[in-house]
Amino acid sequence: MAEKGQENGAYQLITPPNLLKAKVGKGGMGRIDPDLIKHAETVVDSLGNEFAETVSREILHVMELAMDLETDPAKAADIMKNIRRVAHDLRGQGATYGYDLISDVAECLFQYTDRLSSAAELNPEVLRAHADAMRAIIKNDVKGDGGVVGIDLVASLDALVLRMTG
């Protein structure tokens, strides 16, 4: 690759050729074909049902982990790791499929684990409260952020997390 560089004191500025643009053409109005973008959105929408099933499975998983925590507190470190994995995955996907509120509740759960100084402080009731909220969202197919009611729900979960970690 030809480098057009200029020495200027302690740094060198290089302007590589725009190979990407050369490869895809000059484009024009819309650049990426709007019909293809619409098609991609339709495909993602169709994956929404699959996502709702994934959340339902993960809710059960969180409930089981809460129960394990009560019956065998020695497993707290493993349970914490699993909860963080579930929360991290769901917060990163919810809004993509239109379930913004699932992302918000999962984020709140993740923040809860972040604020604890050790896994031994995990409280099964807090885990259940988040699982319960996610179940209400999925069971009733609440898309978007849930408006004022959704914001209130997340605020209550935030307050719960603060209360249990403060």
Partner: peptide, 10 residues
């Protein structure tokens, strides 16, 4: 449903 979950958290 959402308000019931909120009441539970509260």
């Amino acid at each position: 449903a959402l308000q019931a979950s909120q009441a539970n958290a509260n």
